[in-house]
Design a protein around this nucleic acid. Structure first.
Lengths: 319, 319
DNA sequence: GCAGTTTACGAAACGCGTAAGAATG
DNA sequence: CATTCTTACGCGTTTCGTAAACTGC
């Protein structure tokens, strides 16, 4: 277990060329040296990796298995080298964020634009996942910061409240329910729905809520995301339920109105989670701080159960 | 880019201990040697990885970034070592299969039991994914064999037909529709449904089919898998749609009946895909051959459009 | 005999440990 | 002055390249 990355490169090259000499030339080494390296690799694992023939080398099954892993190791090593070379060119940090859909598409883009200008030499990676996966990733060091939706029991992680997002019904401006100040989820279920990609935390949550009141979604169509759904909502094919900020975004370009859901649980509490704030580099801590400030300012402590007051549905139209 | 795995181990150990001396002791090396290795690592990347202090070492942001990748490389390398050590103890091959749900839970277990007895020294890894991911994995060498559901346009891969699975409605034995020889999907949509985990290929497919006839699922509950659904079907909470072989399995232990769907598309054509049969080791080719033989024998060329005849719903009950 | 792999061998390079130096609190 | 990291240096091992032997088509 003390082999080189160059051993792996050589191994892969030989496996792909089926030929020790060509692989050796490609890597600017003499065949005898390659031969020795491979032999040593085989000895260290106690397994033959290639079948030898005077016509060339071919993989044994053990070699096939090794090839699989070796390729992945090399890919990762290259990414590492590339990232580090960015540092040598001035990059000062990388922050890896895993977020639920609304965070990755609505909140983070805004929040990050100010962060990135403040920290010009820090780069940010965002991946969209469901809450469960996010928690796992943060725990396992695969993500620095997680944005999750709803209250989760998360031991060993540090949790901070982020934005509170009120869920709203998104409807065409000429839909009857636009006359109302709010609507209960149960009432809304009597209307036709445009469904969103089922593989996200919000949708799984809503389906469970529907079960609890003993009703079901009358899904008229199933589309990828909120923007696709909006297009169908405009045509009055149905309504959909999204977070308020998503609704606002969609209403900017389409004649839509958002009607708040009156149920208590319709105020979804998004949370920021990190393994340990103290472990994070300063710029990442700063990002967490900025997110927290940003999140709470966006939803000013209206955290009381079902307060529909701060939600205006007037400015949601296209007018 | 010619560093050791030991370099990475050392790097991670120092990062975790925050202390070069302790890390060096742990790895049975003298601190001066560690110091030299780290320095060389830093030179090769042109980046400082640690902040030096007389109290110990702490990671720079570049070091943090490297730690992230280094951990993953080491995990992979350990898996590789473990797998190769299996080879040195007699293992003769590994086959990695990615399959859709029904393949992984119904078909492969049966097929593999005979394969594994025939090839006592070959091990098989199965992962469950949706068809799109499976195709990508096979293409990118992450899987040797893929089992996908439905006809896909897959360039560059070799495709073989596998089993044809008729979709059936699963209902409690005392449900009215049990009197019928078959039922159309459109009719079935008028009944209450128990929904399955939405993140699988079959479900996405069914939801789209429902859209096409302009109806929607009246989902009364949403559960993880077919066995959980069966329990609710028995209580007459609703019906569900599954592949016939899944239905058969569930009916073994519960008073259920399977009523075939009469729609032409209800005969789902599962397919085996590989990158290139010639590239695979003999035992993997043999597995593909066994799967193909198995699959076609299970669904004897009833591939004509909507032939409900070969499907008996008599033996599906518990009686 | 040609294309390919492996063995033999001397020289250069590398990495280890010992020992001593330097910095910090 | 104790802890910790770094530099200097001698020694053994590794790894390289050259050259020659070996193997199947």
């Amino acid at each position: 277990m003390r082999f080189d990355l160059f051993d792996l490169q050589l191994f892969v090259a030989i496996a792909e060329a089926g030929n020790l000499t060509q692989a050796s030339n490609k890597l600017h080494i003499v065949p005898s040296a390659s031969s020795a390296r491979i032999k040593q690799l085989e000895d260290s694992f106690g397994v033959r990796l290639f079948h030898r023939a005077s016509t060339g080398l071919s993989l044994t099954p053990a070699g096939q298995a090794m090839l699989f892993h070796a390729r992945r190791i090399l890919l990762r090593a290259n990414r590492m080298r590339d990232e580090l070379s960015e540092f040598s060119r001035g990059l000062q940090g990388v922050v890896r964020i895993f977020s639920i859909s609304i965070g990755a598409t609505v909140y983070l883009p805004k929040a990050l634009s100010s962060f990135l200008t403040k920290h010009a030499q820090v780069s940010v990676e965002i991946e969209e996942h469901i809450s469960d996966d996010i928690i796992r990733a943060v725990r396992e060091y695969r993500a620095d910061i997680g944005i999750i939706g709803g209250k989760f029991a998360v031991d060993e992680l540090q949790i901070f409240p982020y934005a509170n997002e009120r869920l709203v019904v998104l409807a065409s401006v000429d839909h009857p329910i636009c006359a109302r100040p709010d609507i209960s989820f149960e009432e809304a279920l009597d209307l036709d729905f445009i469904g969103l990609n089922p593989h996200n935390t919000l949708n799984l949550f809503l389906i469970r809520q529907a079960n609890q009141v003993g009703k079901t979604f009358r899904t008229r169509a199933l589309v990828r995301g909120p923007y696709e759904a909006s297009a169908m909502v405009v045509g009055n094919a149905g309504i959909t339920i999204v977070e308020e900020s998503v609704a606002r975004q969609c209403a900017l370009t389409m004649p839509l109105r958002a009607i708040p859901l009156s149920d208590p649980w319709a105020l979804r509490e998004m949370q920021i989670c990190v393994r340990n704030l103290g472990e994070l580099p300063p710029f990442a801590r700063d990002l967490v701080a900025m997110l927290r400030a940003d999140g709470t300012s966006l939803t000013p402590a209206s955290a009381g159960a079902a307060a529909p007051s701060p939600i205006s549905n007037a400015p949601s139209g296209i007018d």
